[in-house]
């Protein structure tokens, strides 16, 4: 009687173990025949900018880069035609003297609103306040050196 129970118990415990083991062996032997090469995964598009800064970058490249340059050095193709050179957004000493509110105002109301050149036009009727905020955020990332 007890022997029979023992046999039943043994088979209950051992059968799954056996199945598991054989499955391992089979899948292991599979490995030798398959190749992994060539299968690609889509790559993450990495960027150091936040979403806000990215939106600002789009606007900057569309509206500002023509004069201020693609990288913000103030060397856009139109900068050479101007009597007052466009601001260099990479210059840390100048940029650190400007508050976010001031940059916002110059973009919104133009250079003349802060007593600067009217060559910087007012964008307030073209770019919304929240979009100007993204621009300010992006312009802050352009500073490269302390020169």
């Amino acid at each position: 009687m007890s022997k029979r129970i023992l046999i039943i118990l043994c088979s209950i415990f051992f059968t799954p173990a056996l199945i598991w083991f054989s499955a391992q062996v089979v899948s292991g032997s599979d490995d030798d025949h398959t190749e992994r090469s060539g299968f690609l995964l889509p790559q993450k598009h990495s960027t150091n900018l936040t979403r806000e800064q990215l939106r600002g970058k789009e606007l900057y490249q569309y509206y500002c880069a023509l004069c201020h340059g693609r990288t913000g050095k103030g060397d856009g193709f139109n900068s050479f035609n101007m009597s007052v050179p466009p601001a260099d957004h990479t210059d840390a000493t100048v940029m650190s003297t400007l508050s976010d509110a001031q940059i916002h105002q110059v973009i919104k109301e133009g250079g003349s609103s802060l007593g600067r050149s009217p060559m910087m036009p007012p964008w307030g009727r073209v770019i919304s306040d929240s979009e100007i905020n993204t621009l300010v955020a992006y312009i802050r990332t352009l500073v490269t050196s302390g020169k």
């Binding site: 009217p118 060559m119 036009p121």
Partner: peptide, 10 residues
């Protein structure tokens, strides 16, 4: 002077 249109136009 006021609007500096010449910043962009010739």
């Amino acid at each position: 002077n006021k609007y500096a249109c010449n910043a962009c136009h010739q």
